[in-house]
């Protein structure tokens, strides 16, 4: 029996060595899998990573598999394991709640490259990369412009729960607003849910009643807040994706994530045989975060200028955002 196994492995080895696919490995399609919590066309977090891979697909053959809508963390863990087992080259665990599982799974598949975000932790593993967005930078720029626009001296933020990427964006926004106008009333309302659209709408109305005349918000339930702002023609700043389509009349600008900037680096590393161990961050300076203006919105030139100045300041390092 043992002997048989030996023959078998020898035969396998020969097959692998002789197989043309091994020799042409660099030329074949890269197999990439995305596991994400919401729908792939959600105009928000999940869509941003799918768009990132699709941007790369223009130049390179990529076989893409997407498991979206996976909000059950254990199901995501099973998907991560399954894709790794099926021989995918790169598995993207696109949700900060997936990290704990990835930490335990990745060591079982040393030949697979994993990346996850948003986070800044590779668990010290050689085949895991992490990625995050400096959403505080975009938030800061938006805050500056919002404060510059506000006539009543009040801006409002609708947030989900005070954690992760949402907290980063909200804190950046408040910091920017205060930097532009120290006396601004920047009110933040964390509604306690990522999915309660009706509550988000009422939170936006509460802000407006309290005297906010510029609004922003983050996470997927803000579609409700955008609707409420639109009914009162109150300007809105978007994040995670370009939200202009949701309310062309009021969306001033959106912070957009261009993950292809770092995905290109991860894939280039893989071509060179490096499967991970690096932490990536998209920001304004590296072009991973872009502020997209809505051309249809008639924005005061001075406001845009204040925004552009903030962008330049963050890029050259004269403005510091975030907690560290």
């Amino acid at each position: 029996m043992k002997k048989f196994n030996l023959y078998l492995s020898a035969a396998f080895l020969a097959l692998i060595l002789l197989s043309p696919s091994a020799l042409l490995a660099s030329g074949k399609a890269l197999k990439v899998a995305i596991i994400a919590p919401s729908a792939q066309n959600d105009l928000a977090f999940t869509q941003s990573i799918v768009d990132g891979i699709k941007a790369i697909q223009k130049d390179r053959e990529i076989e893409l598999a997407i498991t979206d809508g996976t909000f059950v963390v254990e199901d995501a863990a099973a998907a991560i394991r399954d894709y790794a087992k099926k021989g995918f080259d790169l598995v993207l665990a696109h949700g900060s709640q997936y990290g704990g599982s990835l930490k335990e799974i990745a060591p079982d598949f040393p030949d697979t490259a994993f990346a996850w975000g948003t986070s800044a932790d590779t668990f010290g593993l050689a085949n895991v990369s992490s990625y995050e967005a400096a959403s505080d930078e975009g938030g800061y720029v938006m805050g500056v412009m919002a404060a510059a626009m506000s006539k009543k001296g009040g801006v409002g933020v609708v947030g989900p729960i005070e954690v992760g990427d949402a907290k980063l964006y909200v804190d950046g926004f408040v910091q920017g607003a205060k930097a532009q106008n120290a006396k601004i009333r920047a009110k933040v309302n964390y509604i306690g849910s990522f999915s309660d659209v009706a509550l988000a709408a009422e939170a936006a109305r509460a802000h407006m009643a309290a005297g906010a005349d510029v609004l922003t918000g983050t996470a997927q339930m803000v579609v409700g807040a955008i609707g409420a702002a639109r009914a009162k023609r109150v300007p809105w700043f978007g994040t995670q994706a370009n939200q202009t389509e949701l309310a062309p009349e009021i969306v001033v600008a959106s912070q957009v994530y261009k993950w292809d900037v770092i995905l290109n680096k991860i894939i280039a590393d893989m071509d060179a045989g490096v499967k991970g161990g690096k932490m990536y961050k998209i920001n304004l300076a590296n072009g991973g975060i872009v502020i997209e203006f809505n051309d249809a919105y008639k924005l005061d030139a001075s406001v845009k200028e204040a925004g552009m100045k903030a962008i330049a300041g963050i890029k050259d390092g004269s403005i510091k955002t975030g907690h560290k």
Partner: peptide
């Protein structure tokens, strides 16, 4: 669980 920790995505279903 795979992760051997508790994590929330804001709801109970996750």
């Amino acid at each position: 669980s795979e992760s051997h920790r508790m994590v929330t995505d804001g709801g109970s279903t996750g």
